[in-house]
Design a protein around this nucleic acid. Structure first.
Lengths: 337, 337
DNA sequence: ATGAAAGCGCTAACAG
DNA sequence: CTGTTAGCGCTTTCAT
């Protein structure tokens, strides 16, 4: 029982008594081939269920029709939505996806990138891991002529196409909403500041405070962007709680964790402390009170990323200018703020 | 600015004045090559950052070192956990993953499969889409000698390795728990019955009722396995509500949706109606009351699936018997039941 | 110890 | 209109 080898163009040629190139051409409707020959060859190929060897094709064409995708963590709803947005369009255009997870790990991200380069992918879509603070590993891809599109978590230092949200605006809107409800002492649960999204959301928060004449206090900005970190900071948060009336969390999970801690300690949300999240994932409507949050369009961002990539791949000669596509955030008001 | 072509073994040979085959051999430590030559060639390869062309390798070796993965819907936490479990081990063993989503669509699943076969993947891991009711498309892979491992949602008709949960037992445990709390009128929100997992969980439910002397009523079994469907059946559920005291939902999302509907209509959970889910995803601890549920180990199931696959791929000659690995479900008691 | 050559499956330039 | 040939990058007999 050795592995059956799929049949090739050569087998067809032999069985039909024509040359290999005739088969090749017939199968792709080359005008040189007589229609009878074409019909015969195609019928036979169909009959024996011939399938071209994609590997051989890629090698020959120097093009793999594969796009690499690096995701920080597939379990996050935002990122899996991004994948869906990418996939639909990619497959439609005849591209396959190799998906890698960096698991928020700089080193792993570098390995992912190397893998994708090794596989001669035609392009790479990537969102930075949280721990990525240098960008040399992207140079390798670029030096090999592989275009990169950054989405959501982008590297400012690298010239490339980018798809982002206007996170500054998002932070501003969220914080403004809290202020408009009457909050005056607002804590911000922030993402790492070497990430643009972390910096921008925080700056938006600060801007909102400033333009409303509120003081910016460093001790009210906590580096804390996962549910686990919130749990770790529980006591610290409870110390802060008596003197605050609002929380702007950098994502939904931290917002929800914060709500749970507050509620378990007899604070009412939003009456005592209003809480606003960022993302609008499926959890937002499971927590009680339902979460007021900033909508982050994962599917659409994925779609836009692959569009930018395809535009470039479909016009290999064009040398298109790098473009940054920015999505406007919107606020969805529910019950938590 | 044409695309730079990565350098090849041929370039190295030319630049170093040796033959192509010498370079090839030196790079893989072939004993025939003198150690001086090896050192020289390796040093140079390192210096110029030579990377073998994976495509050419695959073609030559008739082995792509790629494993295909078909996922019904990546946004489900269970499935993204499975991916993580698979990925870690696969990469460690030098395999890459091509991930496809069937989006719960039979036809799309068949296309996914074709794509993977075309790419000459070495093996395929698949969980059936909800709409898959025939299995011919798997034959193609098998006929091509590509081994398949089914995980979670398996095809009984196909001989292959399988990784499942004991869903019958899961359904039984869940229902027994409700009964032990005193529930006597239990609704089951069921998955499609052509899926083994749907059938098995339901049978477990029935078995628990029977062995406790409770009547099995068809009108208490609703085909309803997504949040959306629950919402659609809202009125129906509220009609049922006065006469029931327990719900066993086929997954967490439907359990949660049911809880929300009940609460919005002034039923208390668990006092009036106890609700138990299946899966133990992250949502389980966000809903209030926290969800009692059956633990479904996605990561571990993924890990086990890839293990079965690797075992087979690493012993191509062995002709190993097909194996079914079954995980025992466990109950995690929180507040909702 | 090293090199020449064939071939994995396919395409395309060249010949006829 | 069809066939022959070279070559994509690599490995592996077979010579030397």
């Amino acid at each position: 029982m050795s592995k059956p080898t799929p049949l090739t163009i050569k087998d067809i040629a032999r069985n039909l008594g024509v040359s290999i190139s005739t088969v090749s051409r017939a199968l792709k409707d080359h005008p040189d081939i007589s229609s009878e020959t074409k019909i015969m060859i195609k019928a036979y190929a169909e009959e024996v269920n011939y399938r071209p060897n994609v590997l051989a094709l890629s090698l020959r064409r120097q093009k793999s029709n594969t796009i690499g995708l690096i995701i920080p963590a597939i379990v996050h709803h935002f990122f899996s939505s991004v994948i869906s947005g990418i996939e639909d369009l990619a497959y439609k255009e005849g591209y396959n996806l190799i998906i890698c997870q960096s698991n928020e790990n700089h080193h792993r991200e570098a390995i992912n990138l190397q893998t994708l380069v090794d596989h001669r992918v035609d392009g790479i879509l990537v969102s930075l891991s949280k721990t990525t603070q240098s960008f040399d590993h992207f140079r390798e891809a670029i030096d090999n002529g592989i275009p990169i599109v950054f989405y959501d978590r982008v590297a400012d230092e690298i010239e490339s196409d980018k798809v982002i949200m206007d996170d500054f605006e998002g932070g501003r809107i969220a914080t403004n909403h809290l202020i408009s409800r009457g909050c005056k002492n607002i804590v911000h649960l922030a993402a790492p500041q070497h990430l643009q999204i972390g910096k921008n959301r925080r700056n938006g928060y600060c801007e909102a405070l400033k333009s409303n004449g509120l003081e910016i206090r460093e001790d009210r900005i906590l580096k804390c962007d996962t549910r686990e970190e919130v749990m770790t900071l529980k006591n610290h948060m409870l110390n802060l709680a008596p003197e605050i009336d609002g929380i702007f969390a950098v994502n939904d999970s931290t917002a929800i964790a914060a709500i749970q801690i507050l509620q378990n300690n007899n604070y009412r949300v939003p009456e005592d402390i209003a809480v606003i999240g960022y993302g609008d994932g499926p959890n937002a409507t499971i927590i009680n009170p339902e979460l007021t949050t900033i909508v982050q369009k994962g599917y659409e961002m994925g779609r836009e990323s692959i569009k930018l990539m395809l535009r470039r791949l479909n016009n290999p000669a064009a040398d298109i200018n790098f473009q940054t596509k920015s999505f406007k955030p919107s606020l969805i008001i529910r019950q938590s703020a």
